[in-house]
């Protein structure tokens, strides 16, 4: 158990160390910056509540990425699902102002989820049925989704009088309500439910079992009669749906509209969360909270000090860089390297 824990803490420590060195080289006091980040993310009950709420989309994206990783598809295309899901939710919410509150929230969430799932059909078809490389395909599809969303907003959903491309603010009835604590909104509850479902799905669901086996060994799965393509497509669509839901939650809970820059590289943060959390439910949850601190503090830190927002982006990026690092086995790698040298 301690071994597993340390293998997760190693990357976090490494990332912090690397980021602090770079921040120091850029002329800022790294310790001070770190303290500022903690203060603006965890300094007050309101800040903690906001961090938890902001963790929700990350949790969902982490789960979505985890599903694909388990089935052996390196899906980096959730950014696209996130953006299109957010747009779909924001647009739907605009038409829900007259509905009673539960429905007014449910419909946009569903719309986001469906949009994400539908968009994932494109890479799913290309990767599973046409055998294109998963990384390249999902990356390309991401950019297409971003441009498509921009175009859709410009062409159909532009808020009247808005200078940059943004949809109208959504009606208040569709905002995710606070639960129990000011600033802590429903998205946190949604993410906890999804984490629980994911944990059960992994250990008990037949699809969870199937994705695991397919991810480990596709030939074996084929030979023992798994419908490999059905499983891969299901996993990718499920993942797209959850990615879209993440976008919807972000739109209804935090941004309250769709606007250029809606996703601050959330898709890639989701990837990081999944890898830091080793595709396991509790790991994904904790890793999301950690990254949410950085996401939240980015804006706050600029207001209370002269440390620019980019400092938190630097730390985020070093988390991504170090997410998959495993410090165990370092000696073996070093030996391989030496042997190669000793010619």
């Amino acid at each position: 158990m301690t071994g597993r824990l340390s293998s997760h803490l190693g990357p976090i420590a490494g990332a912090l160390l690397a980021a602090m060195v770079v921040i120091g080289l850029c002329g800022f006091n790294p310790f001070e910056s770190l303290i500022l980040i903690f203060r603006s993310a965890l300094g007050s009950p309101a800040a903690i509540a906001q961090t938890c709420s902001s963790a929700a989309p990350l949790v969902l994206l982490g789960l979505a990425t985890g599903i694909c990783f388990r089935s052996g598809v390196f899906n980096v295309g959730l950014e696209g699902c996130f953006v299109l899901g957010g747009l779909a939710a924001a647009v739907t919410a605009g038409h829900c102002s007259t509905l009673p509150a539960p429905l007014a929230i449910l419909f946009p969430l569903l719309a986001g989820s469906v949009a994400g799932s539908l968009w994932m059909l494109v890479p799913a078809w290309l990767v599973v049925f046409r055998n294109l490389d998963d990384v390249v395909t999902t990356l390309m599809v991401n950019f297409v989704a971003l441009d498509l969303a921009a175009w859709l907003v410009e062409r159909f959903f532009l808020a009247p009088g808005s200078a940059n491309s943004a949809t109208a603010m959504i009606p208040a009835v569709t905002h995710l309500p606070d639960v129990g604590f000011p600033g802590l909104n429903l998205s946190f509850i949604i993410s906890i439910i999804c984490v629980a479902f994911y944990a059960a799905w992994c250990s008990r669901g037949t699809l969870g079992y199937e994705t695991r086996i397919v991810g480990w060994n596709r030939r074996f799965a084929r030979a023992t009669g798994f419908g490999v393509r059905r499983i891969l497509v299901s996993a990718m669509l499920l993942s797209g749906g959850i990615g879209g839901l993440a976008g919807a939650v972000h739109a209804l809970g935090t941004v309250h509209q769709y606007v250029t820059g809606f996703s601050a590289e959330y898709g890639f943060l989701g990837l990081t969360v999944a890898i830091l959390g080793d595709n396991r439910a509790p790991g994904i949850f904790l890793a999301s909270l950690l990254l949410a601190m950085l996401v939240v503090s980015g804006i706050g830190i600029q207001l209370i000090s002269d440390v620019p927002e980019e400092v938190t982006r630097l730390i985020e990026a070093s988390f991504i860089i170090f997410a998959s690092v495993r410090f165990t086995g370092f000696g073996r790698r070093l030996r391989n390297w030496r042997e190669g040298n000793a010619r």
Binding site: Y209, R212, I213, W216, N217, R219, F220, A221, A223, T224, G225, F226
Partner: peptide, 17 residues
């Protein structure tokens, strides 16, 4: 690589299919 999935547990291998 085809008769067994070596990473998976004996149980997972025994019920596959």
């Amino acid at each position: 690589t085809e008769s067994l999935c070596l990473q998976a547990s004996l149980q997972d291998n025994a019920i596959a299919g």
